[in-house]
Amino acid sequence: MLAAAVWLLGFAATGPGASAQQFEKNILTGGPSGTYIQIGRDLASVANACGLEYTIRESAGSLENFLGVRKLPHTQFGIVQSDVLEYLKTFSSEDPDIARAILGVRIALPLYNEEVHILARRDITSLSDLNGRRVAVGVEDSGTFLTASLVLDLAGVQPAARVTINPTASLERLLANEIDAFFYVAGAPTKLFQSAEIDSTKFHLLPIDDPTLTSVYIPTSIPAGTYPFQAEETPVVAVKAVLMTYEYTPKKNAYHRDSCKAVSDLSKLILTNFRQLQEVGHPKWREVNLEDVPPGWEVGSCSSAGLEQDYELQCGALPVQSALPESLESKANAAYRAKICADIGC
C-alpha cells in the first residue's frame, strides 16, 4: 500500500523547490480515457488561447497526483478526489512524512462530484453481502482504490480478497466470474458501463445507503436508464473532485514565485472562461459549483490572488456582478467565495 507515497516522498525530501531544468507548468490528471484527463485538456485549451502553456500528464489517479504535487518539481496541479486527505490520515496517521506532506496542500478550485459505482452479481444485494467475496478495488494509489478502501472499512466489510486491477480488467473478470463485484469511482455516466456485455439479469449496481457512508460522503443517486442494464434508480454516494495545488511562497525563491504565478494565472483563466468551459468543455463542467469547497480543504493563497479583480492577465477579466456576504468559515475560504461571486454571480 502507498507505493507511490514511498517513492515520491523519497524523490524530493525538501518538497517543491527550484530545479536546474527549464520552468514548466504541469497538471497531473488520470488515465487516457478518464474524465480527469478530459478536464485537464479543457484547462490546457483555455490557457493556450491566452498564450500560456500547461502540460497535461497522465497518472494512476488521486493518490499519485496528491503526492506528485506535493513532491515532484514543476508539478503545480493535480486533480484528486477530496477524500484523499481522509485516506492518508486514516491509513498513514503514524507516518511523519505523510503528515508533513498533508500540511502544504491547498485547493485551487472545487470541481464536480464523482459517483461511487459498485457493479456486482445479482445475488449480492447489499454492502454486507461483499463479506467473504472477491472484490476488485482499483489500481493501488488510484482514486477508486482509496475510496473503495475507505468505504469497505467504514462499512465494516471484509472481502475474501481485495483485487487491485483497473476498471477495464475488473469488468472483464466480473463477466468471466473471476470476481464477484468491483468498485469504480467516476462521474456518471461513464463509458465503461455502456457495454452491451453487462447482462441486467446477472449484474446490477449495488445500492449504497449505509448511514455511516451517507454521513461521510455525498448522498446521491444514479437515475434509471443511465446505463443500458439499469432499469431502476440506484442510491449511491459521491465524492467531490478538486483541482489541488500547493501553498507556494513567492518570496522563498524563483521556483516558488513562478509556480505561484502559474496557479494564479490558471485560477483567473478558469474564472473568466467558466461559462465557456460549461458550454463547450466536458459535460461535467456543468455540474461544477465554484463555491462548494469541501470540508477539510483550504483555498490556496496563490489561487486567491488570481481571483482578485485587479489581477493582471492578458486575457482580461469579467466585470464585477455581485458580492457574497461574510460567513463563519475561514477567512481564506470566505474571501475565495466572495471573489467567485463577484465575477460569475451566486
Rank of each mutant, 00 (worst) to 15 (best):
G34V: 01
A49N: 15
Q22S: 13
N26M: 08
T14N: 11
L9P: 01
A4D: 10
Y54N: 14
A3L: 15
L43C: 04
A47M: 04
Y36I: 11
M1E: 13
P16A: 06
G10K: 02
G51Q: 03
A3P: 13
Y36D: 12
T14A: 15
T35V: 09
G51W: 02
A18W: 09
G51F: 01
V6G: 12
G51A: 04
A49Q: 12
A49C: 15
A20K: 10
L43P: 06
L63G: 03
A20V: 08
P16T: 04
R57L: 09
A3T: 13
L43M: 00
G10V: 02
E24V: 12
G31Y: 02
A20M: 14
S62C: 01
S62H: 00
I56D: 03
N26W: 07
A47R: 02
A60G: 11
S59T: 00
I56Y: 05
T35Q: 06
T29W: 05
S19D: 02
G31K: 07
P32E: 00
R41P: 07
T55W: 10
G10T: 03
L8A: 04
L8Q: 01
A47N: 07
R57N: 07
N48V: 15
L9W: 04
N48G: 12
S33W: 11
G61Q: 03
A47W: 05
F23T: 08
T14M: 12
N26G: 04
T14S: 15
N26V: 04
A5C: 11
I27A: 09
Q22H: 08
S59L: 00
G51E: 04
G34M: 03
T35C: 02
A12P: 07
L28S: 03
M1T: 15
A4V: 10
L9E: 09
G10Q: 06
V6S: 13
L2N: 09
G61S: 00
A13K: 14
W7I: 09
E53Y: 08
A47D: 08
V46Y: 09
G40W: 06
S45I: 05
E53L: 13
G40K: 01
G30V: 09
F11K: 11
T55Y: 10
N26Y: 07
A44G: 10
T35K: 03
T14C: 12
Y54I: 15
D42C: 02
A47V: 07
P16C: 04
G34D: 02
Q22V: 07
P16R: 06
G30H: 05
M1G: 11
L52I: 12
L43K: 05
K25F: 11
S33A: 13
A20I: 13
G40E: 00
A47S: 10
L28M: 06
W7P: 15
T35L: 00
G31T: 00
L28T: 05
Q22M: 10
G31L: 01
A60Q: 13
G34P: 01
S45K: 09
L9A: 03
